[in-house]
Design a protein around this nucleic acid. Structure first.
Lengths: 115, 115
DNA sequence: GGAATACTGAGCCATGCGGCTAAGTTACAA
DNA sequence: TTGTAACTTAGCCGCATGGCTCAGTATTCC
């Protein structure tokens, strides 16, 4: 229901777990219910639901409930956060010092999406 | 000394912390000592050293000690792990089902670098 | 040699994560 | 209306993370 703000922290954390990456892979092929998503894993449902929770809070997926079934869909746009961070990193290597200056003075390279 | 094996788990985990991302940003401009790297952060040195440890274990940086100073350098190649994962993800969206099949049967999209 | 610099190691603490079970709740089916 | 299916909530457990302090080691400088 609520729109979760996607942060690099949250996205990278979400994606650092193999179970969650597998779920993202599956959802890349199209929406699926919790039950379908959970099936391949030898894990109790409540445990699996925690993973879904992280993915949703990170903004990488969205879910909606229809009847007694919850359907999950991929939020492809959120992956751009990762890509743009990679790009920034590489642009630093290239020696574009404009951004570097800010980095040295503020000690951060974070770029968060506006809520 | 030891070559650490870079896994997606480790790399994403390492990169999910703002302090560590800032360090990577700084190192993008060239090697630096622990002291130089730690300076911008309001944090005790041993705490900071833990971050360096994670970065090194993930394979994102390398360090060597010269005299009493430890110098850190970026391992740019490790960033490719992230990029290739993004690429795989996108190729699933494109509908290339070869990889998808493996995904559905094994329940994983992991790709680890051989030790 | 003695002091200062630059880490390093040991260990404590609070919180978060990834798993579990047991007991709800809600919708669909018979 | 009585089940059953598909989550959901609550709460427990052990380990990891991110911070700290305090003490130790190893270089370098005077």
């Amino acid at each position: 229901m609520a729109q979760y703000s996607s942060t690099l922290d949250g996205v990278f954390q979400a994606v650092s777990d193999p179970t969650r990456r597998a779920v993202l892979g599956r959802l890349g092929a199209g929406p699926a219910s919790i039950g379908e998503l959970a099936a391949p894993f030898d894990m109790a449902l409540p445990s699996f639901m925690k993973h879904i929770g992280y993915l949703e809070r990170s903004g990488l997926i969205r879910t909606r409930k229809t009847g007694r079934v919850r359907i999950c869909t991929l939020e492809r746009g959120t992956f751009d956060l990762i890509e743009s961070w990679l790009g920034e990193q590489r642009s630093i290597w290239e020696g574009r010092t404009d951004r570097l200056e800010r980095l040295v003075t503020t000690g951060t390279v974070d770029k968060e999406i506006p809520a």
